[in-house]
Design a protein around this nucleic acid. Structure first.
Length: 196
DNA sequence: CGGCCGATCCACT
DNA sequence: GTGGATCGGCCGA
């Protein structure tokens, strides 16, 4: 399991790239599901107009973003989708990485059940709402500690399993759905595994 | 309070 | 390519 020091790094853009190829795991009702992270987006705290914490805003929803790195930030989008983020940086610095895509590894049967499908296409691998759905993550899991929760039910954690991603395999581009963020909307803070 | 709309997804055309 | 689903957070009055 990845330990605290990884999440406490101060460069959220670097962490977003390092998370590619790592394995996001959950244990829900005793069932393990996991997937290799294939797509991420960095949200750079109070100076990032696309971040929920822009300008140092604190609300009951965003409060967990101010906890220490290694905390889960999960919120509801469009009234029906849970989106999972990894809080990074030291306590008080509300940085986060949105996980936008995974490739399922363990618990494929359970993942198919959650989607009510009998086979998994690439359709499960991209889209932040689908990532949370595949792994059984909901808004009630916001605040879960990714370092100390493993073993408990409702646990969420990340593992390094030796999937090596070459820098040349990482594609970067602007983040999705943040047109409102003005001059920050075009920042190349979206990363995914691809080809060159 | 009221109203707008979002870090989305899917079914349809 | 388009629109419906569906609702909590947030802001302005």
């Amino acid at each position: 399991m990845i330990l605290r020091d990884f999440y406490l790094q101060t460069d959220v853009v670097s962490i977003a790239k390092q998370l590619l190829g790592k394995v996001l795991c959950t244990r829900m009702n005793g069932v393990l599901t996991s997937g290799m992270i294939t797509e991420t987006e960095a949200y750079a705290g109070i100076v990032d107009r696309a971040s929920h914490a822009y300008g140092g805003k604190r609300t009951s929803r965003t409060e967990v973003m101010y906890r220490q790195g290694g905390t889960a930030y999960v919120y509801l989008c469009y009234g029906m989708h849970s989106l999972f983020n990894v809080v990074t940086n030291v306590e008080g610095e509300p940085h986060a990485v949105l996980i936008r895509g995974i490739q399922p590894i363990e618990g494929v049967d359970e993942i198919m059940r959650r989607f009510q499908k009998t086979k998994l296409g690439v359709s499960v691998t991209n889209g932040p709402g689908k990532v949370a759905k595949a792994l059984g993550i909901h808004v009630i899991h916001t605040g879960t500690d990714l370092v100390t929760s493993s073993g408990n039910d409702g646990a969420i954690w990340i593992e390094e399993r030796g999937f090596t991603i070459n820098p040349s395999e990482i594609l970067a581009g602007p983040r999705i759905g943040v047109e409102y963020a003005k001059e920050d909307a075009h920042l190349p803070y979206r990363f995914l595994i691809g080809w060159k």
